[in-house]
Computed example of a mutant assay.
Amino acid sequence: MGNQVDKLSHLSYAEVPTVDPNGVDAEDGPRIGVSYIFSNDDDEMDDGCAVEVTDKDPNQEEKQHEPRDEVECAVFYRDECIYEKSVKSASLDVFSPENLLNKCKAGDLVEFVATGQYPHWAVYVGDFQVVHLHRAEVKNSFLTDASQGRRCRVVNDRYRFKALGADVVVQNAMEQVGLKDRELSWRNSECFAAWCRFGRREFKVGGEIRIGKQPYRLKLLVSDKHAHVLEFQSLEDMIAEKRRNDHLGRTAVLRELATHVSGAGETRGHAGAD
């Protein structure tokens, strides 16, 4: 991934200076990323109540998952890479729920994917069942029911944290079943499933203080040589932005970046004319 960074801004975001995760600044002038407290995820936050909306719209035509439209990215905590998604490898391991059953073992993290939808994460607990955060409640469901017809894959290796033992992961998940609304400590299904597997407080709502320097960097691959880097104060915030990009898809994200870069260029042009 390269080091070129352009400006991306959203009206609801607070802009902060960004730097390349490898410590190389190849551009003159300011580099801008985004950081925010709440997100327009498939979850709605209201006084600590998370609602994950993953049910399919009966009036919306089902879109087949397209691996080539996934956003390739990496996440750094200071100089350490803690998450990486390679589209090339990810495109090879997507299965139907029925076929995935033969590849799952208790304690695995499963991701359900479909074009135009937020990814939905769950913990496989054995006996064809998963535990997942869905519509403001932690539920124990059959894998096929939780998938809602989407393709799925095992995503144990996305995060590079040391995993807990499989029995502890399952116990973590099962002990939360039935929690709902204000009892919840997770912003979305990914944060919940990752917390079950790694046990890190950073995945919980308010697990990190959002003040001072932004230590997390989300590096989006724009091309083989260029990347766009966004900076965040917490892992929770970074995950929300990553999921938003997954929902939009690579084509829409690149279009969004191009629009904002073009706007920033016009602004600089007007400023230079004064």
Rank of each mutant, 00 (worst) to 15 (best):
G48L: 06
Q148R: 13
A122F: 12
F232L: 01
N22Q: 14
T115E: 09
V125M: 08
E70D: 09
N40W: 05
D46V: 13
D55G: 01
E80L: 15
D79C: 09
H260K: 08
Y77P: 05
S12D: 13
G2T: 13
G249W: 04
N188Q: 03
F112R: 00
R151S: 12
E208R: 00
T267D: 05
L257V: 11
D145I: 15
K139T: 04
V154T: 06
R158K: 07
V155K: 03
R243E: 14
Y216W: 13
R135K: 12
K88R: 09
G33I: 07
N40R: 06
G207M: 12
A136T: 00
Q129G: 08
G2Q: 15
S147M: 01
E62R: 06
E137K: 12
F95H: 08
A106L: 13
H65L: 14
N102P: 05
C152M: 06
A90E: 12
D237E: 12
V130Q: 11
G249A: 00
N22D: 15
L11R: 03
S35Y: 02
A173I: 15
V19D: 13
L218F: 11
S35M: 02
E62K: 05
R250F: 05
A163C: 10
D127R: 05
F203P: 10
T251D: 06
I32C: 05
T18D: 02
E236S: 10
V169L: 02
R244K: 04
E236A: 01
A227S: 11
P215L: 06
V51N: 00
K225F: 15
G207C: 00
S147D: 03
Q117L: 11
A90K: 02
